[in-house]
Design a protein around this nucleic acid. Structure first.
Lengths: 235, 235
DNA sequence: TAGGCTAATGGCACTGAGTGACAGATGGCA
DNA sequence: TGCCATCTGTCACTCAGTGCCATTAGCCTA
């Protein structure tokens, strides 16, 4: 299953940002400035904390003006989450590449596995270690956590649209695509919390935590926690 | 089922803030200032928008100093979400009052119904209309939406702890409480999105939307979207 | 009822985020 | 080479948020 995974990363994720000749010099320069700003920002955040780092310090490290920073990012939040948001958004692409014969939840799980495998193998930023450190940063900052959740919500919409497309249903009248994605992410989030509590050491442990959460999910259905006839009114 | 609901609101929610003799004059004065600030803020937000409203305008309307405002609230976000956060937190109390014979999901649904019924009947703030208007405000502002999601996440922890208690399991080793609550809220959130898209007219429609989401949830399980053997590895 | 204690308030000054406007620099292209 | 479009820097401004200290006002005891 790993083979398909690394192939996936190349076409959909672009987590490496391998500078595959992005047209003219101007574009390349912009890309470099953007990457430099993210690198400098993350380095400072990790070293002296998110709140303690000012934008002036970030731009000083890259030697661009404060004004320029705001032309690339809306604020500190955005530069801090740029990488992890990229990873998250790549899930939509990975989902689209799953064979349409797979049931929605299976496709979601496989897409997640593919992205995490790609993360693992990528030697550049977006790699496993960078992801773990960024995760800790988010976990420690209410503002970043809030922004992360909001971005996840937006990504959910895209994923729900994709599920609706591959299942051939109308997402405006059928709630199932939205429910599937929303609950799927709920499970992943629980697994992530568990992973964080255990120290968030490596992404391989995150994969294990997600699997464990899904097993517990099965147990939940069988253990009667849902109640009988829970879909209709039971009062 | 409504009878239990209104009783619930009195003991756990306190959504009315009926000024039940909060001790000394000093305390009462503080409470009044706090309420006045929230009222003034919401009024301004509704009239001229969240971003366009400055804290100076809020404090001018209540005639307190800017410095005092920040002794009550951490910022604009907090004053905007004070009421809806109160409603959300009351869910934890309502959940604790459900009979422990009820399966977790049933208890969660009934607690939600109780809170919504209490919202309906309450003639003061926290009433149905105020809730709807606040919801629209949140929906229109990315910052508020982010803060709301974060608060929901924290409330989830409390609810999971309560579920774990009533089921007699250890929340640190058993993921089921966290999964139950997380997925439950995921369903409610989907229903809320649907409700908002349809105009978010009245809380009674929200209750209907939640019921509809649960019906779709049942259809989801039966329609094979989960796949077979989805709890274990299927690759 | 006086007077001291404690806590809330107000005013001031300062840092930092974020934005609009305009001038200068630089890559793209004929 | 020189024009055009776009990116960048500088300046000035508003507003959020915080620390510090003096003042006011509720509370409690003698």
């Amino acid at each position: 299953m790993d083979h398909g995974a690394s192939r996936t990363s190349g076409t959909t994720a672009g987590t490496g940002g391998l500078a595959t000749a992005p047209a003219g010099l101007r574009e390349r320069k912009k890309e470099r400035t953007r990457e430099a700003l993210i690198d400098a920002a993350l380095e400072l955040f990790w070293r002296k904390g998110y709140d303690a780092t000012t934008i002036d310090e970030i731009v000083a490290a890259v030697d661009v003006s404060r004004r320029t920073f705001f032309r690339y990012f809306a604020g500190k939040e955005e530069v801090a989450l740029a990488r992890s948001n990229e990873v998250e958004r790549s899930l939509v692409g990975a989902l689209a590449e799953r064979p349409s014969a797979e049931p929605p939840v299976v496709a979601l799980r496989q897409a997640t596995r593919a992205i995490m495998a790609a993360l693992e193998g990528d030697p550049k930023r977006g790699s496993s270690e960078a992801y773990v450190r960024t995760r800790r940063l988010i976990e420690a900052n209410p503002t970043l956590m809030a922004a992360t959740l909001r971005h996840a919500m937006e990504t959910e919409r895209l994923m729900a649209a994709e599920i609706a497309r591959r299942q051939g249903v109308d997402p405006h009248t059928d709630l199932r695509p939205a429910l599937t994605v929303s609950c799927f992410n709920a499970v992943v989030r629980v697994a992530m919390d568990e992973w964080t509590e255990r120290g968030a050491m490596h992404t391989s442990e995150l994969a294990a935590a997600i699997d464990e959460a899904w097993r517990a999910m099965a147990g939940l259905i069988e253990s009667g926690w849902l109640g009988s006839g829970w879909a209709s009114d039971e009062d």
